[in-house]
Design a protein around this nucleic acid. Structure first.
Lengths: 212, 212
DNA sequence: GAAGTCATCAACCGATCGGTTGACGCTTAA
DNA sequence: TTAAGCGTCAACCGATCGGTTGATGACTTC
């Protein structure tokens, strides 16, 4: 008899946890050993139960999926993290991969795709949802002109809140000229022509978040 | 023996459908008679199976939850629609209620809350998640200064895409002065001082959507 | 040590934006 | 019918923005 894959499910929605639990525990070669409702809980339980694969949501209270992934990987690198989320923004995908995720699935994936992904992850194989793989490929092909620096993102986040260049300059203790320079760079990188479109594109790509 | 509540589950995520199915069909007084993956399917199945309560997601391909709710209510008004979604934007809530939803729950609701909501809905009782009720109350208390007219929303959606006033004027076949007037009104209604903040606030409140 | 990126600043330009005031016709609600 | 809201437009103003050129120093990377 094959040893079954020990799973930890992490998601802040009880409905989703129940769904995953039901679907996965019915597979003969899988076993759900725990559930967590936020990132902090996931880290704690993963350490205690040492699952083979952690299914990880990204947006959660307390600690988000990326941070939790990093912590789990730091403590026990052989734990495989399979990100399962609604969001397919470039920024989310990249951050998850950088944090050490073994795979990236979208929640609208059909059941079979999910099973396969869990099995692949348990063997350390890297597997992405087709839509996600697409995004990654495109990102690699076109030289990423949209890698904003920290400062640029910081300035853009003030723009999002409706501050003028002058106000941003005061907030950051730099001159207005500096703010303008940053923004011009942002426009070029994002391929837009004004601040409003820049904010819009940044939100779409997940460079900025809607809440705060 | 009490007659059990006949349920139709509508959600584009297989995982969520499985979760709801598992949780609800385990309740002695409930029975899941069908599942739908989009709005169009929901309308079709609801007509055929005549469920007591339809659990309805809002954002779905083909036909969104609001449209599906309207159609189902039009054909068979005694069907109770319980909206179950991730989004709690004012605009979403209002549109759902206007379409005839009997209740509005968020997906992060605990199991018990869900069970109660289904039972309440089956009797035609109106039930909202606490967070949702909060939003509705606040909306009623503060005179809604932010009810944008159709035209204003239209103009704002062009602004979001980064068009200048002149370009918007051309697109809508009106003068630039008109566009400016609309925008000034938008700023006042949303309580902001420039176009970028207006877009940002509109996105937060669900007046504009990120995609398209 | 050269090349590249990043953050910083200055001075200047024309275009655009935000705001005001005032106006007209239309429809809906009070 | 009076009021209110909507959509349309004009003319005008000062402030802001987008863009350019050019420059400096710090820090990596090769």
């Amino acid at each position: 008899m094959k040893k079954s894959i020990r799973l930890l499910i992490t998601d802040d929605h009880p409905v989703v946890r129940a769904g995953l639990e039901g679907m996965l525990s019915r597979q003969p070669d899988m076993e759900v050993v725990g559930e967590a409702g936020d990132g902090a809980e996931a880290v704690e339980i993963a350490e205690r139960l040492q699952p083979d694969v952690v299914l990880m949501d990204l947006r959660m209270p307390e600690m988000d999926g990326v941070a939790a992934t990093q912590k789990i990987k730091a403590v026990r690198p052989e734990t495989q993290i399979l990100v399962l989320t609604t969001y397919d923004s470039d920024a989310d995908i990249l951050r998850a991969v950088e944090a050490g995720a073994t795979g990236y699935l979208l929640k609208d994936a059909p059941r079979e795709e999910l099973y396969e992904a869990v099995r692949a992850a348990s063997q350390g194989k890297v597997l992405f949802a087709p839509a996600v793989a697409d995004k990654l490929m495109r990102r690699i092909r076109e030289p990423r002109r949209d890698t904003l620096s920290h400062r640029e993102i910081e300035v853009l986040s003030f723009v999002r809140r409706g501050l003028s260049n002058k106000e941003i300059a005061r907030s950051l203790h730099v001159s207005e000229a500096t703010v303008k320079t940053h923004l011009i760079h942002v426009f070029k990188k994002l391929g837009v022509e004004d601040r409003t479109a820049a904010v819009s594109v940044a939100l779409e790509r997940g460079i900025l978040q809607l809440n705060r």
